[in-house]
Amino acid sequence: AVCQRCQARFSPAERIVNSNGELYHEHCFVCAQCFRPFPEGLFYEFEGRKYCEHDFQML
């Protein structure tokens, strides 16, 4: 399997985020606008991209 964002493979010891069947490295699972991790894992999706609450409100 490969990361949805960076397309790199996962190492066996690595923590992986699964979002609706899409797999991400922990450091790749970030807001599409500000590139920060999601507070408490909370995000909003718009047109296939994931956003933090602040950036989602700015759309």
Rank of each mutant, 00 (worst) to 15 (best):
S19T: 10
E26V: 13
R9H: 11
R5M: 15
F38S: 03
M58I: 09
Y44C: 12
C52P: 00
P12E: 13
L59P: 06
P37N: 05
Q4S: 13
Q33N: 13
V17T: 11
A32G: 10
A32P: 02
P37Q: 04
E47I: 05
S19G: 12
A1L: 08
Y44E: 10
E26C: 03
R9F: 03
K50L: 12
R49C: 12
E47C: 06
V17L: 12
C34N: 01
C34Y: 00
I16D: 05
C3V: 00
P37E: 13
F56V: 12
G21M: 04
I16Y: 07
E14K: 03
G41T: 05
L23S: 12
Y24W: 09
E14P: 02
E26D: 09
R5P: 02
E26G: 04
A32K: 05
S11Q: 10
R5V: 14
V30F: 09
C3S: 01
L23V: 10
C6G: 01
N18R: 07
E45V: 10
D55V: 00
R15M: 10
M58H: 11
Y44R: 11
Q33S: 08
L23G: 07
F35A: 14
C34I: 02
A13F: 01
S19E: 11
L59S: 05
V30A: 10
E40F: 12
D55M: 00
V30I: 06
Y24E: 05
V17H: 12
A8W: 14
S11D: 14
P12H: 15
A8S: 14
N18P: 07
C6D: 00
R49K: 13
L42R: 12
F35C: 14
Q4M: 15
L42Q: 09
R15F: 03
P12L: 10
F43I: 05
V2D: 09
A13N: 15
V30S: 09
G41K: 05
E26Y: 09
A32V: 12
F10Q: 01
F29W: 12
E22Y: 10
L59G: 15
G41S: 06
K50N: 15
M58E: 13
Y44I: 11
L42G: 09
C52R: 01
L59Y: 07
C31Q: 00
R9M: 10
A13C: 07
R5S: 15
R5G: 15
H54N: 15
F38V: 08
Y24R: 06
R15T: 13
D55A: 02
V2S: 03
S11A: 15
G41M: 05
P37V: 07
E26A: 11
E40L: 10
P39Q: 10
R9Q: 13
L59Q: 10
A13I: 02
F10T: 09
Y24A: 05
G41Y: 03
C6R: 02
C28E: 02
S11L: 11
R9I: 11
Q33G: 08
A13H: 13
Q57T: 09
F56L: 10
Y24S: 06
C34P: 03
C31K: 00
L42C: 10
L59D: 01
V30C: 09
